[in-house]
Nucleic acid binder design. Structure first.
Lengths: 214, 214, 214, 214
DNA sequence: AATGAATGAGAGTTCATTCAT
DNA sequence: TATGAATGAACTCTCATTCAT
């Protein structure tokens, strides 16, 4: 039976990959526009032009496609972030690089799904954050939290959990604001966010000299 | 049917107000526990003991009760915030007062709907943020943005929109972290957030001398 | 709130009961015609003229309405059967009464749902056995098995499990055949089945003298 | 694509037959395990290792493979049954032989699809009767009915339709019970069923002397 | 003839909302 | 105005079947 297989499965394989990608793209858009809860599987497949059942040939559920999207983003971003750590960078450099990488990533991400969108549509934009962005964001948070914890060892310092939360908050919201503007100026936004973060850390009690300026 | 006499007209009036409030209370709890999307109108009215249809005598939709909740919060918080402005406070004082008021408000808010919850239940805690908190938060954001814009008139300064976004981001996320801890330490969290905000603003290019230190 | 209830809930209560019954009747028909697996909830509600969602106001699932139907039948039949036992009846009398009661029950059961059926329809009749019949049938089986086991105590006898199975098999299939004829002659069928059962038991090895003739 | 050459035309012919058989075998198992309604075409082809579409090269639908299975069983059983008839056997002998043949067949049938089953699996056993068994059973029924009708010609006797139904009912249900036991004792079960059938027929009104003892 | 992805009807079920009582 | 059953659109997911390769 297996010998009777067709020798050229190319076209089939091609559309299979293309469909998988189409679903992923549609899902990114839909999650970005409607948010995870509001988005339905139907919303996703409707946008692909595929049949309802086809979705389930690729993903078993809404949850799974969401996870796949997050994985995809994290996988693409992880190497970038990894390159920034342990290289003897100062904390300032690390923050700057990480923020820049993050802003670059989300700008690119958004660009791809905005371009494909038909112009006339309403565009609700409930949340504006795809699972991919969320995943990348989580990566950043972990890296930052870890870095803060490590670097502050032995020194008197403010609550590291709050510190990480605050830094991350700045990165996220300034990033979001950045995406709303045209043209999207990643460098300007990154400069701002980095300055704000480093300044803020410096302003914390008992961390002025031993801590943030490291 | 039209001759059905109410037994106590006075009570009826009372009931109208009480029902409206009961629905609002239930909605606050439900939105806090399940989040807007997951929460259903049924969840809300079930908790009031009222009938399904009664909900629609007071609010036309889930969306409307959500808005009403937000209004309610904003209305209660607005005076507090208003009291802080134009009183000749320095920017530092203003920030400190506003953050403190916000943290106090959300801590109290959370306390009320946590206390009422039966002890044995699972407690999903999906989002943790009621529309009221969100509304109050928006108030803060506007006040801060306005204040920043005013105070910086004529001076070279960083992007005020980013500035507001960053300050607000810190307030929100540190506030959220605060709510996760026991006991809830509003003062500690506020001190941290204020220091981070003021320090951050100081760190911004071209605002060091003319701006944030005011 | 509870004092403000309308004084006359009669009509509502009435239609509620009527709907519950309508669904039950429709379910009996549908299960009888299509069998449990093939039957769909939509088949059932379609026959009632109610809306799809209404079904779920009364039963939580297809399974539940099936169980309710079985319960209903068993509940109505149980007293009849119970009256026949322990009254000092001979085994012959017991069998005769039980078979007669069973045939009477299924004939009546079938009559009600056949009469209501629109004449022109195809009428697949896959199984012909409603859950109610099945439940009643199970009652009979248990009673018979128990009776056989009791009465044969101490005597050499054939396999009681096979005996019960055989008796029950006769009752079921002769009953089914009976339902296919017009007019439905319950007495004739019962006489036949009883004779066959008693004769069959007599014919079993080692039970001829001590057992079945009791 | 049309130039795709099969590597071995001889094998191809073989494959055709083998596939048809593989599907039939899988179908027998699946129907036996899940019952007709619950079983899906996917269940069947999954077990063959063939592709979904291939099923439809051999059978046009689930219904058709079911019918083919029944045919298969009937075709294998028919000669056995045929050998028993018109050989001047007495009715008693005929019944005994037919029942024995039937029990032997279903025991063997069950054995083959039980043995092949992986040991660890759950084994639902919803129905326990394959279409083949059902078909063989139908053969038996027809033979019995015909025999009863023929032999009773001219004599006063009970309803032959009921007689056949009752005999067949005993055969089926005792056979089913037999399959549930370990070891499967076809002789014991056959002896029981035959005794019950012959005794039962003797017990019928007006058939005692002229009929069943023939 | 074999493949397996695409299809789309249809299953069970939920829920915001309406409306007769 | 309170009630709560009725409504029906929309949801997630399954599966027999088709068809390009």
């Amino acid at each position: 039976m297996s010998e009777v297989a067709y020798l050229n499965p190319g076209k089939r394989e091609q559309t299979k990959v293309a469909n998988r990608q189409a679903i992923l793209d549609a899902a990114r858009e839909v999650f970005g526009e409607l948010g995870y809860d509001t988005a339905t599987v139907r919303d996703i497949i409707r946008r692909t032009g595929l049949a309802a059942g086809t979705f389930y040939n690729y993903y078993r559920s809404k949850e799974e496609v969401f996870a796949a999207l997050a994985d995809d983003g994290a996988r693409r971003f992880a190497p970038i972030l990894k390159g920034l750590r342990g290289k003897g960078y100062s904390f300032e450099d690390f923050v700057h690089s990480a923020i820049s990488a993050y802003f670059g990533f989300i700008a690119e991400e958004q660009r791809t799904w905005i371009e494909r969108r038909p112009a006339g549509e309403p565009h609700p934009h409930v949340h504006g954050e795809t699972p991919e962005m969320a995943a990348v964001f989580a990566e950043i948070r972990d890296a930052l939290a870890e870095d803060i914890a490590e670097r502050r060892k032995g020194a008197p310092f403010a609550d590291p959990d709050y510190m990480a939360a605050a830094c991350i908050a700045i990165a996220r919201d300034v990033g979001e604001k950045m995406l709303e503007r045209r043209p999207v100026d990643t460098k300007g936004a990154a400069d701002f966010a980095v300055a704000m973060i480093l300044g803020g850390l410096k302003g914390l009690p008992k961390t002025v000299d031993s801590g943030a300026q490291d």
